[in-house]
Design a protein around this nucleic acid. Structure first.
Lengths: 135, 135
DNA sequence: AGGATATAAGCGCTAATGCGCATATACGGT
DNA sequence: ACCGTATATGCGCATTAGCGCTTATATCCT
């Protein structure tokens, strides 16, 4: 019961639904989420973690990046239908559509990502080439 | 979007899920809910109202009683899948099972229903005979 | 009309939530 | 080793949520 209320609680926040809107498209790192939704790093990280420990997301590290994605297998039956509901509800949402659009332009290294980011900014591939900073 | 977060928020509370557990069985009045869940009248009423104005419930009056039930038609598509998820999640829940059991013994007129109820207590049918007070 | 009662609503308190700010931690590049 | 960056976390604050207590409202019965 507690598990269920907790799941609903996790879904009862606009920021988190928008995050799911992104993750339904593809796996994302915190940095991409904060850029696509135009929110602070703290906020992105916190809300990703909240979704994570309800069991809705899974996480993996790749170099510096913490990558989150929807845990489709992990939620055996429990939340399966729930994610479908969210997916359906968000599919025609203009905010989510915009977020997804901004996600395409998001870079793993971008302005505002770090405390004093973008001094000369021309870093690129972290561990293995994933995305390159445009100039 | 707001409508969706609000719906999830409404479902993120144990009391309200238990209430839905009852209403999935049948229409109930506030009094029955408070007896079955063994909660205060204020709490039953408030939480029913919360579910009501998210659009999950519909309400009708019958004499003194305010009867709530799940609004299966009213939520065209929006929450339809959501209710299915809740139904499935609650079907094997022991707390809900117990609540439903207590609902069978609940009476529309029972001890604790009113501010100073059960003085001589032998009221019965309100408008049309629905249930009679035992003893 | 008067009494009883089922429900709703105002008020105040406590706990939980969301978030920004600052800081800590982890990792890769030079 | 040092620096910069991506992410996580402690702290404090403002807002919201949930609930009990009390009171208001509506309805029925005699």
């Amino acid at each position: 019961m507690r598990e269920l209320t907790k799941a609903f609680q996790a879904l009862s926040d606009e920021t988190r639904l928008r995050i799911l809107g992104l993750l339904l498209e593809r796996e994302c790192c915190v940095c991409e989420v904060m850029q696509a939704l135009d929110i602070s790093q703290t906020r992105a990280s916190r809300n990703l973690n909240i979704l994570y420990d309800t069991g809705l997301l899974k996480q993996r590290n790749e170099g510096l990046w913490s990558l989150y994605s929807i845990d489709r297998e992990g939620m055996k039956g429990r939340f399966a239908g729930l994610v479908r509901v969210v997916e359906k509800a968000l599919e025609s949402n203009p905010v989510v559509a915009l977020d997804r659009d901004k996600l395409k332009n998001a870079q793993r290294v971008g302005p505002g990502c770090g405390p004093q980011a973008n001094k000369t900014s021309k870093r690129s591939t972290p561990t293995k080439g994933s995305k390159e900073a445009k100039e």
